[in-house]
Structures are given as structure tokens and as C-alpha cells.
């Protein structure tokens, strides 16, 4: 029973708690955008905590490095993924919740031409 052991248990439990919050948010929240916020962000932190616990727990360096790679990778890709889904569902006409108090994005989209790149153009 060392300090690393205690820290591992603490991080795993914290990660499980954040994942549970993410799942509750996914069920309870009223519209897609708020749902996505509580799901992907709390979920990211939950997984990151659990992977950090695995990095602390394993003594061999390669496994610890792998776990750290998981943490870094989640922090890099999760915002990109949720931004992609949010913008795609806004463009495909997914409405906001009735209690939303302001929408600056709609105004900017109606004024001015749509000069974003053509989606058929696949040259990245």
C-alpha cells in the first residue's frame, strides 16, 4: 500500500465519476448541443483520469508511455471531433433548444454569402 497505489485508486474512481456525469448529461440534457457538451467533455476527462491511473500503476515504461499517449491523444482529438459534429449538425438544420437566449451565429449566416470551401472538393 504505497502512495502511488492510493493515487491510482483515487484517479480511477474520479474517472468513473466523470464518466457517470457524462452519461447522466447525455440522458438528461434537452438539446443536442448541451448534450454534446456534457457528454464529450466530462467523458474526455473521465477517460484521461483512468488512463493516467494506468500510467501510474504499471511499472514498465512502455505501458506507461502508451497510457500517456492515450491521455494526450484524447485531449487533442476530443475538441476537434465535437466541433466537427456540432458544426455539421448546425448546418444540417438541427434546431436549438427553446430556452436558448441568443443566437449570433444564425444572423451571421443569413447575411453574407457562404464562402466556405466546397464539400465536394476532397483535396485536403
Amino acid at each position: 500500500m504505497t502512495i502511488i497505489n492510493i493515487l491510482t485508486v483515487f484517479l480511477v474512481l474520479l474517472g468513473a465519476l466523470f464518466s457517470l456525469i457524462a452519461a447522466i448529461g447525455l440522458i438528461r440534457m434537452p438539446d443536442l448541443y448541451t448534450r454534446m457538451q456534457s457528454a464529450t467533455k466530462a467523458g474526455t476527462l473521465g477517460v484521461a483520469c483512468t488512463a493516467a491511473a494506468a500510467a501510474l500503476h504499471f511499472k514498465d515504461t512502455i505501458a506507461s508511455m502508451d497510457a500517456i499517449i492515450v491521455v494526450v491523444f484524447f485531449f487533442l482529438t476530443a475538441p476537434v471531433a465535437s466541433h466537427l459534429i456540432a458544426r455539421a449538425s448546425y448546418t444540417s438544420g438541427h434546431r436549438l433548444w427553446s430556452q436558448t437566449i441568443r443566437d449570433d451565429y444564425a444572423e451571421s449566416r443569413t447575411s453574407g454569402p457562404d464562402d466556405r470551401p466546397d464539400p465536394e472538393d476532397l483535396s485536403l
Binding site: 467533455k41 474526455t44 476527462l45 487533442l76 475538441p79 476537434v80 456540432a86 448546425y90
Partner: peptide, 30 residues
């Protein structure tokens, strides 16, 4: 900036305007 805003819960970057002077952010509660 967009990635950091999206990473912190409660805010989500939707788009950046064409002239790069405005960013549209969805707030969970304002």
C-alpha cells in the same frame, strides 16, 4: 484558441467567421 475553448466544458466553438475576426461559441449557460 478554438481547441482550448472546446476542451473546457460549458463552451463549444462552432465556427470562425470568414474574415477571422469573430468566433461563434456555444455556451451551456449564460
Amino acid at each position: 484558441l478554438a481547441n482550448l475553448i472546446t476542451l473546457t466544458p460549458g463552451t463549444l466553438t462552432l465556427d470562425v467567421s470568414a474574415d477571422k475576426r469573430q468566433m461563434f461559441v456555444h455556451f451551456m449557460h449564460v
